[in-house]
Design a protein around this nucleic acid. Structure first.
Length: 818
RNA sequence: GCGAACGUGGCGGAACCGGCAGACGCGCAGGACUUAGGAUCCUGUCCCGCAAGGGGUCCGGGUUCGACUCCCGGCGUUCGCACCA
């Protein structure tokens, strides 16, 4: 080392960061008073799934952004609670455990220890007293309790449902595990099976879940997230219409009752219960073959959009309630049993799918809507779906009506004849929470031959997941737990007879749907969440997380909170008062994933540059809510910045009290403080950092370093570079944490300089600038501009037509030849 | 197909309510200090032009004294949802 600067002027993140992490732990710096906090602020980040690979840069980005915000709130005087935990149950862990041949119960604690090390290293303001893992019986006891509350309230039920089944791995697959109709792991063709599954009645809450999205008093969320939820819930207004058949009335849902006169055939989902009754003897063999083929398909490829339409005529007929015509009934897999009534009236003239189907099978097409310049018999090249200026044709007394008016009129007309009703339909399905796997909380139900499905009594919770070695799923289609008789057979809690446990475990999303309620109350063994604690800290003040959870996790959490509210356990129904979606950090344009081999591990960067430089660099990459591509070019710039601040603090620490700075520097500083505070509040971290860099450049430009400014500067920097700021703060003579300081205020009177530069334009083109006194009048500004030769030459021989004066900013002189 | 976001130097990005386009950083170029520099410091860095000046925010129109910003029409990228009746 031949460094010529004094040793104390070299900033050493390797020593400083460890020092402060130890001190924060010793001094309980990050632990708010959960029972007495006067200004509670619950700052939540999405807890990670503790993978074997450790946290990647994307995780760090998410956590750091949330931590910056939490630390900023702390500096504003809030009692910030920033807990962390692990979403450690689930199929990821289990599959990985199977792959490496180590039991997940052994693997997970190892991974958690590594995560905790990384999370500590990056310098999060985490309250480790309240760390939790969803795999801890003390946690999932209450996940099971939650299930029981829903069960008792009639919000949990069991029904047969289609699942993806891999005949080779002999297991149920999630939709994401099916690639092109094949198992992602073994490549075998996936089939459909019908299994008994537990569901939660989230559809009962569809209307409320949707309505609250617009209620700012309950939830202030990123627009991208509310939009995603709105689409997911998928509200459609339409009508339910009844078509008479020999097998009884056949009900359909349609958003276009105005086109009922054009319904020339009907299509049922292959699984529709009325299919056997409608099928003629002549068609029975073909219908059965088609149904079998549909059942053999996996759920994913069944729903792929562009594939050719297929179907079979059942031989049965229905009567169009509007026209009285007999129309054929078909089955086709483009009609889904899960949506609407599982049956449609097909209007080929005005629906693209029906048009394709009718063309394929030479079914009649009748136009009932015509465009502004079309006759009732203008031939159709495809489905006519335009509504603008359209009117009904071939629709008896409704001819000439606009489709929007006809919807109501026709539905009412049919309703009067007992064949229709207005109805709202949602796209949302009930939430299937059953998993025929091992690594999850056992669903707390006992089956008794005499008593049926009996809930496990609450005092018997938790139903502990037994530590079995053969946790692999097998071909039975039931959970591995069923193979363990000592666990499986249990006395019925109601009658005492030998009964059997439910062997399914619950979905990981149930674990994460209530973790925010547990954090403040982790030390209470006898209740899921303490009422007083919950009242003080919940709902979550600010939740920052990835938009990949915009629908599932965030919607399920809202649903669970709503149910708990209705059952009297919570006095709010929306769990996250404010939610902000951060952007995604990608690498080379693609999402980071192990299979792509583009995962960036943060540890080496942190080791090389320090946690603070790395944190700041991530926050400086671009707008936090947009994310971006990770590259390491430029992290050096942040390090340089910190080194310069370090030197500045060194100068300030030695500055004499009487040293004064110019008014221009003071004004710049007040503008900077204002900008940093406003930008951080809006998650504009990149521009907040840029503002501090700009200020630093001003301070370094030969100005005296005033102690007050240096101290305030360090506080402004603290949310981004907490260890660095602590060390600077100490160096400036403070004995307490910089996070016990207050974020500096600013004086509105000092924001504008006494002399301002005015941009002068002639006919909208910038021709120069002049210095004028602040708030100078227009006449004075024009005079100053005319006095400037470079500007005056453009005014020579010209008549002034108009002057536009924006005080302290711009002067535009509009001229024309005299 | 539907929905949402976006398009600015070599790169990441900035620009409040319509008011100096390119802040801040990276990179690059030149210089200083050095045995050395991949450290540090200084200067420069949208394009054309010696200059005066001109052009410039995906493309084409429009509104305006003035447009990256607003309006109309294209093109392109990214992300959701996707046979939802």
């Amino acid at each position: 080392m031949t460094d010529t600067t004094a040793p104390h002027d070299v900033y050493r993140p390797d020593l400083v960061e460890a020092k402060w992490q130890a001190r924060w732990a010793e001094r309980h710096t990050n632990e708010p008073d959960l029972d007495g906090a006067a200004r509670p602020f619950y700052n939540l980040m999405m807890f990670p799934y503790p993978s074997a690979e450790g946290l990647h840069v994307g995780n760090m980005y998410a956590f750091t952004g949330s931590d910056v915000y939490g630390r900023f709130k702390r500096l504003q005087g809030y009692d910030v609670f920033e807990p962390l935990g692990y979403d450690a149950f689930g199929i990821h862990s289990e599959n990985y455990a199977i792959k490496v041949g180590v039991h997940p119960a052994e693997l997970i604690p190892r991974n958690i220890a590594n995560f905790r090390r990384q999370l500590t290293r990056i310098g999060l303001m985490a309250d480790w007293r309240h760390e939790l893992s969803t795999t801890d019986p003390a946690y999932y006891k209450w996940t099971q309790w939650l299930f029981l509350q829903l069960f008792k309230a009639g919000k949990a039920y069991k029904k047969k449902a289609a699942v993806n089944w891999c005949p080779n791995d002999k297991t149920v697959l999630a939709n994401e595990q099916v690639i092109d109709g094949h198992c992602e792991r073994c490549g075998a063709q996936v089939e459909q099976r019908f299994l008994e599954q537990w569901f939660f009645r989230i559809t009962d809450y569809a209307a409320r879940l949707l309505a609250n999205l617009d209620d700012r008093s309950k939830m202030d969320w990123s627009a991208t997230t509310t939009t995603a939820q709105r689409n997911w819930i998928g509200r459609s207004e339409g009508a339910e219409l009844a078509f008479a058949t020999d097998a009884g009335p056949l009900t359909v849902f349609t958003t276009r009752p105005d086109t009922v006169f054009g319904a020339t055939f009907m299509v049922l989902a292959p699984e529709h219960p009325l299919v056997p009754a409608l099928t003629s003897d002549a068609q029975r063999a073909a219908v059965e073959a088609y149904r079998a083929q549909a059942a053999a398909q996996d759920l994913v490829s069944r729903k792929v959009g562009d594939k050719a339409k297929t179907g079979v005529f059942t031989g049965g007929f229905a009567v169009n309630p509007a026209t009285g015509t007999r129309i054929p009934v078909w089955i086709a897999d483009y009609v889904l049993m899960e949506y609407g009534t599982g049956a449609i009236m097909a209007v080929p003239a005005h629906d693209e799918r029906d048009f394709a189907f009718a063309t394929q099978y030479a079914l009649p097409i009748v136009r009932v809507v015509a465009g502004p310049d079309q006759a009732a018999d203008t031939p159709l090249a495809g489905a006519y779906v335009e509504l603008e200026g359209a009117r009904l044709v071939n629709s008896a007394q409704f001819d000439g009506m606009a489709p929007a008016d006809a919807r109501r009129a026709i539905t009412e007309w049919l309703a009067a004849r007992g064949a229709g009703a207005l109805r709202v339909q949602y796209r949302l399905y009930d939430w299937c929470i059953s998993r025929q796997r091992y690594w999850g909380p056992p669903i707390p139900i006992i089956y008794c031959d005499a008593c049926g499905a009996v809930p496990v009594p609450e005092q018997d919770l938790p139903v502990v997941l037994p530590p079995i070695d053969d946790f692999r799923p097998d071909d039975s289609g039931i959970s591995p737990l069923a193979r363990h008789e000592e666990w499986y057979y249990v006395p019925c809690p109601r009658c005492g007879a030998t009964a059997r446990r439910e062997t399914d475990v619950s979905d990981t999303f149930l674990d994460s749907a209530w973790y925010h309620l547990r954090y403040p109350s982790t030390e209470f063994a006898d209740r899921p969440f303490d009422p007083a604690r919950t009242r003080r800290w919940c709902p979550v003040t600010t939740y920052i997380g990835g938009n990949e959870h915009a629908v599932l996790h965030l919607l399920y959490s809202r649903f669970i909170a709503m149910v708990l509210h209705d059952l009297g356990h919570l006095d709010f129904e929306e769990p996250f008062a404010r939610f902000r979606a951060h952007g995604l950090i990608v690498k080379d344009g693609a999402k980071m994933s192990k299979s792509r081999g583009n995962v960036v591990v943060p540890d080496e960067y942190i080791a090389k540059w320090g946690a603070d430089a790395f944190r700041m660099y991530l926050m400086f990459l671009g707008p936090y809510e947009e994310g971006g591509d990770f590259r390491d070019a430029g992290i050096n710039g942040i390090r340089r910045f910190l080194d310069k601040v370090w030197q500045l603090v060194g100068q300030a620490a030695q500055a004499a009290p009487g040293d004064e700075v110019t008014k221009a520097v003071v004004a710049k500083w007040h503008r900077t403080k204002k900008k940093v505070a406003e930008d951080v509040e809006a998650l504009g971290y990149n521009t907040a950092i840029a503002a501090l860099m700009e200020m630093l450049n001003v301070l370094r430009d030969g100005h005296v370093v005033e102690r007050t400014i240096a101290e305030e500067f360090v506080v402004c920097l603290a949310p981004f570079a907490p260890h660095f700021a602590e060390e600077c703060w100490e160096r400036l003579g403070h004995e307490t944490s910089v996070f016990d300081a207050r974020f500096p205020g600013w004086d509105p009177a000092l924001l504008v300089d006494e002399v301002v530069e005015l941009v002068v334009q002639v006919n909208g083109k910038t021709r120069g600038k002049v210095s004028v006194a602040r708030d100078a009048a227009e006449a004075a500004a024009v005079a100053a501009a005319r006095a400037e030769p470079g500007i005056a030459r453009f005014l020579e021989g010209q008549a002034v037509r108009k002057v536009v004066h924006v005080p302290n900013r711009l002067l535009n002189i509009v001229v024309a030849p005299a």
